[in-house]
Design a protein around this nucleic acid. Structure first.
Lengths: 208, 208
DNA sequence: GTCTATACATCGATAGAC
DNA sequence: GTCTATCGATGTATAGAC
């Protein structure tokens, strides 16, 4: 077999792998792990069931690959807390912008919500996947935000990491309760009220 | 059939219902909805599968009954925020006590964690169950705590409800990240640091 | 490598004896 | 009311042709 033909075959196979990963992602995000079947994954991917098994071994391995792919690529942008794009603004503006961006992203992107549902729901049966989420998504956000607070000693924040956990926790819980658990139908709350109160708590006024 | 015999039959039937509910609860909390089978539920309950169906109709109805039972009875105590038991203490002590109790309960009781996993994980496919959780568990806690802050105007809290959401959110996220998602192995944090920072944010010092 | 066809277990749900 | 036995559908996974 010629070298070009080898590469062609290899890229075709890689294409199938991506197609399977994409189909499996849709299926798992929609129906959960136990609620998904390899038959439907094969159909959604446009390949036969045997091809799915030849590429990913078994259902658990495929689920692992899907979640890791989501945690490493697809969702990195959603939680991207780049200080660079906020440079030149006051801490108050920066914190407000980060909070607004988090809530907007999670509210508009159904993949974010489905991913959080599955990663929390399966965290008991798939602890390694939960840890991958913590390492790849939660930890970077917390550490980057903590460093930002440490870089601004004029804010006089005694415990930056605990403060960041309070901020992130408030925002995540807002998304979980209002959007994912459909709480906005029952006890609505404007996100601006939460964000303003949060920023006012963290950044104390000078005149008091 | 005599009246006493009727009552005996009725109570026997009610006993079976409770046994089924208990067995189904174990099964659903451990394996999730799709991961549970009616065969295993029957085995765990000590009755035949046909009896399970004659009492609860189908799998979905049984799941509904289990979740509602958990949300209405089993978990009410875990989130019981009774001001009465905190009377006579300062607001600072009361808030610390509430936060400590929430974290302690959720950390020690695996049923609380499994319930949160399943109610969040299935909130997309069972929105009514998520709403039942909001109405029966989240809403009462938020409203009671909000009323407490309103009853203490000397704290000068501009937006009591938003403030409560921040507090509850911080605590729930701490439990989710550290315990349920196994984050304590990766990025440990003493709960006291979170609680102290939280209370200091909400209750401003007089001397500033 | 990828397909069709199939093996074998388990699923939700029910019929019929008692 | 509760059981055993069983139905048809669907589950994961694989064998064998190409």
């Amino acid at each position: 077999m010629s070298k070009t033909k080898q590469n062609l075959e290899r890229s075709k196979s890689a294409e199938k792998s991506r197609a399977i990963l994409k189909g499996a992602m849709e299926e798992f995000l929609k129906h959960g792990y136990a609620g998904s079947s390899m038959d439907k994954v094969a159909k959604a991917s446009g390949v036969s069931k045997a091809t799915v098994y030849s590429h990913f071994g078994d259902k658990e391995s495929l689920f692992n690959a899907v979640i890791h792919d989501l945690a490493q690529d697809r969702l990195k942008a959603s939680i991207d807390v780049q200080q660079s794009q906020f440079s030149g603004q006051s801490p108050r503006e920066v914190l407000s912008a980060i909070a607004t961006k988090m809530i907007t992203n999670a509210t508009q992107d159904s993949v974010v919500q489905d991913f959080m549902r599955i990663i929390i729901g399966e965290s008991g049966r798939f602890p390694e996947l939960a840890k991958a989420y913590v390492n790849n998504l939660a930890k970077p956000v917390i550490e980057t935000s903590t460093q930002y607070l440490k870089d601004h000693p004029e804010l006089e924040i005694k415990d930056p990491e605990a403060t960041v956990r309070i901020m992130i926790g408030s925002l995540v819980y807002f998304i979980v309760l209002q959007e994912m658990m459909h709480g906005k139908d029952i006890m609505p709350l404007e996100s601006d009220r939460l964000i303003n109160t949060l920023v006012n708590l963290i950044i104390k006024d000078q005149d008091c």
